[in-house]
């Protein structure tokens, strides 16, 4: 049994009347590469900022390595063991690349100097140049370097590859994989499904402040199915209330279902409705994401 690194219970955050996070129960096991997937404004950054003590939960609680996230003194201990790279990758303009590296490294006794040298080369970061004079992509790379080299047990990355070109994205993912194989737990938010599918082994999906999926990547691929059926007569959505069906789309005599489990019973049910043809197809994380997210949008508009 692996231990849990991040755990939250009914974590909630309101900004005035706006509920950004609505009672989140997260659990990230040690050693995993856990993706935190959601649209912009779904509550990803708010959750991450709560984890690191940058914003205060309205209610609920959470721990990282057993330390309470809502206590400043414990939050300090958390930040010694967690490397965080924010969504906003701007850094101190007035420092040079070398200065900001020296500055950051002074806070982390287990700073990985070899990785630093290596990444400076790979990312082609000019040491003497001021942060102000770096391009946006370079700044992102520098911010990531400052996170990767901290030698921390947990890496929390908020949209790490935003604004990077495909080659740089692949490099960043490669470093993530490399750190993961050293035993670092990685929790990263993203709305880039392709990169999530590539490196993550766990996926958490958040939509409008609510967790809509918490699963392993393999589980998603092995258990989620797309079922298409054609009926002799037109059918309606309410004909498909079976456990395991996540989303129903009907169009006259055809129906398209997204199922998370219980596939056999669902197929049986569809057959009972006298379907002419039934196709059970594998589905991708992208489809699951789109269905989950639009499903919730649909409810919200009712």
């Amino acid at each position: 049994m692996m231990s849990t690194v991040i755990e939250t219970v009914q974590l909630r955050k309101n900004y005035g009347n706006h509920e950004a996070v609505k009672g989140l129960n997260l659990s990230v096991p040690e050693g995993s590469v856990c993706a935190f997937l959601g649209q912009n404004g779904a509550g990803k950054s708010s959750t991450i900022k709560m984890l690191l003590g940058m914003i205060h939960p309205t209610s609920g609680s959470g721990t990282i390595f057993g330390h309470r996230i809502d206590r400043e003194s414990e939050s300090l201990l958390i930040r010694q063991r967690v490397a965080y790279v924010a969504e906003d990758k701007r850094l101190y303009d007035y420092m040079s690349v070398e200065q900001i590296i020296r500055f950051t490294r002074s806070f982390f006794p287990r700073w990985n100097a070899t990785l630093e040298k290596n990444l400076l080369q790979r990312f082609e970061l000019p040491k003497a140049r001021k942060v102000r004079q770096l391009s946006k992509g370079m700044r992102t790379k520098l911010a990531l370097l400052l996170g990767f080299c901290r030698g921390c047990e947990l890496l929390i990355l908020d949209e790490p590859t935003e604004g990077l070109d495909p080659v740089a994205i692949e490099e960043v993912l490669q470093i993530v994989v490399s750190l993961a194989s050293e035993g670092t737990t990685i929790f990263f938010s993203s709305h880039q499904i392709a990169e999530v599918e590539q490196v993550a082994d766990r996926v958490l999906m958040i939509d409008r402040g609510l967790l809509v999926l918490d699963s392993t990547m393999d589980q998603v691929k092995e258990e989620y199915r797309h079922i298409q059926a054609v009926f002799p007569e037109p059918v309606e959505e309410r004909d498909f209330r079976v456990p395991g069906i996540e989303k129903v789309r009907t169009n006259g005599r055809t129906v398209s279902l997204l199922a998370s489990h219980n596939i056999d019973s669902i197929v049986e049910h569809v057959r009972m409705l006298r379907a002419g043809s039934i196709d059970v197809l594998p589905t991708s994380l992208k489809e699951v994401f789109l269905e989950k997210v639009t499903a919730r949008s649909g409810h919200a508009s009712l």
Binding site: K49, L52, G53, M54, E72, S73, L76, L77, R79, Q80, A83, Y84, V85, A86, E87, D88, R90, L91, Y92, D93, T104, F107, F108, A143, L146
Partner: peptide, 15 residues
């Protein structure tokens, strides 16, 4: 305002 507060707050330094 400068967008660097999250970097600073991410360091193990109390407010």
């Amino acid at each position: 305002q400068d967008g660097t507060s999250l970097f600073s707050l991410g360091l193990p330094v109390s407010r």
